[in-house]
Nucleic acid binder design. Sequence first.
DNA 1: TTGAAAGCGCTAACAT
DNA 2: ATGTTAGCGCTTTCAA
Lengths: 334, 334
Amino acid sequence: MSITIKDIAAIAGVSTATVSKVLNGKDKDISQATREKVLKITKEYNYVPNNVARSLVTKRTKTIGLIIPDITNPFFPEIARGAEDKAQEKGYSIIFCNTDDDIEKENKNINMLVEKMVDGIVLAASAKEELNIERSRYNSIPLVLVDRDSNLEGINGKVFVNNISGAYQAVSYLLENNYKNILFLSGPLSTIPSKDRLKGYKKALKEKRIDYNDELVIEGEYKYSWGYEIGKKVLDSKIKFDSVFCGNDLIAFGVMKSFKDRGLNIPKDIGIVGYDDIYMSRLVEPTLTTVKQPNYQMGYRAVEILINIIEGKEKIDKDIVLETKLIIRKSTKV
Amino acid sequence: MSITIKDIAAIAGVSTATVSKVLNGKDKDISQATREKVLKITKEYNYVPNNVARSLVTKRTKTIGLIIPDITNPFFPEIARGAEDKAQEKGYSIIFCNTDDDIEKENKNINMLVEKMVDGIVLAASAKEELNIERSRYNSIPLVLVDRDSNLEGINGKVFVNNISGAYQAVSYLLENNYKNILFLSGPLSTIPSKDRLKGYKKALKEKRIDYNDELVIEGEYKYSWGYEIGKKVLDSKIKFDSVFCGNDLIAFGVMKSFKDRGLNIPKDIGIVGYDDIYMSRLVEPTLTTVKQPNYQMGYRAVEILINIIEGKEKIDKDIVLETKLIIRKSTKV
DNA sequence: TTGAAAGCGCTAACAT
DNA sequence: ATGTTAGCGCTTTCAA
């Protein structure tokens, strides 16, 4: 098919070993003359190294697997981008797989990656906690978790974001700006991040010596539609509140819409804070105060750790917790 | 390290050829007994096939490269997802790379993919038209273009969307609903899709026997901020219009905001149509009438064609043009 | 400074 | 029904 190292060697009148050496920069003791000759032929014949052959002997594919639930969910592209940037920087490439939070797909993907001999895997685990592929199948390959925890064995690193302090920041800010009764519209409390946000909410209250009132915490879904419905309901109920902390931005948008429909003014009548800082948050009316997660950083750091492990620079397992940032906009009054 | 086909063969007391045959289902003439024996050992020892060794001999990596400008741009995740779904369906995996519309990165990525011996490449070309990596470097590997055209040589397939009819649909709809003077806020007219949308705009006018007035076409950027600024300007100008067709949804959001700031009612005073149907379009107030592009389909079909070429099922080069769909919401009156 | 040779783990004729 | 053998294209001792 295409030209190989053997052809180059023949043309140059040297051995394949020599060609390999100059091509890999292991040419300390190769004469300048042959080096140049080889390089010239290489160019001339448009030689393309075959990395699968190389991988077979070096046992390194220079590729890493990235498993996420769904690239279509606005939360993940930034993670993927961060991961790819770091990988590219280090000469690695990324195979990516979507799992749709489906354990079966997740296992299938892991298997495929292992068979493709990836050097490591970054996994944003499925929300379901039941996952339990026999880790023995791929025990030797480094695995770092991103965003979500998992009960998988043999995890070599974790990069999460501090959801407790994220919620804490948001709620404290509300409290400091004279909002007293903060409704918390949470996503499903089955996941750790959701639970942590609730913890942060409580922590902020406690610090300001405000009693926790569980009537003010409502569990729902991370969806616009739920925000919209619950917004109406809550207005019709006897629950007293002057502000809302939402589990994510979509819920916030939904709530906002339902409040505006009822003629309420945001932030004058009710303050609203979201979570995620998705692109839309700066476009809605009023613009949304929200908690920004360092998604790009998560992907980037995860791959960084992974490559360090792969290349033996990192000895011990490593856990990293990234901090969130409160983005203050117009849906809260100061 | 881990167990190989040779080990399995030794344990089972058969040859590697036999093991290979049963593992690959080429076992028509293998006795049931040995088949079972091999399979059992395979399970027992947790054998994982080494795909790089396999690829070296079969010359198939079962992986394809996906090159896009930026997964972080809301336009691309759907394409990526469609591509991955089709790939997975066919037992392929996807290596993905971001180019940031940077020719150099694009070339670097293509080279990397070629060296990794991918079976084919799906490319959403950079917006810049100058691209011209020597196609000879990877002449043999199938390449299909998605979304954007390119002057690359040796392209084996193209999957685009019909921007002419997309714009035509939008503008015709406006015209049919008694809007007379349609402002077209276009993105940069240097790209084919933008040019095509202008063509569609003109075509719709012509069909309704309305004279084209170039004062009503303004070229700008595909950004919220540009939409916002131009919206104000246009209101201050003497340009007469009763509706706006926007090059994309972001522009539409910007325009909408500037009009609402001036106390105009949408759609009563002015109708607005966007392009892309990004997630936000259904959340803004009023919800946005817009043109939906079949992005998922684009990715899906591109990989479908690519795999057909790879597997020799497709002989001739193939071009596909997908149709858009007008999503009617509340930013236009009926 | 260079080369011979072994081998990475697997597949695929071709024998038997 | 099973095994022998020759590679795939490359890297890497080790020897020259």
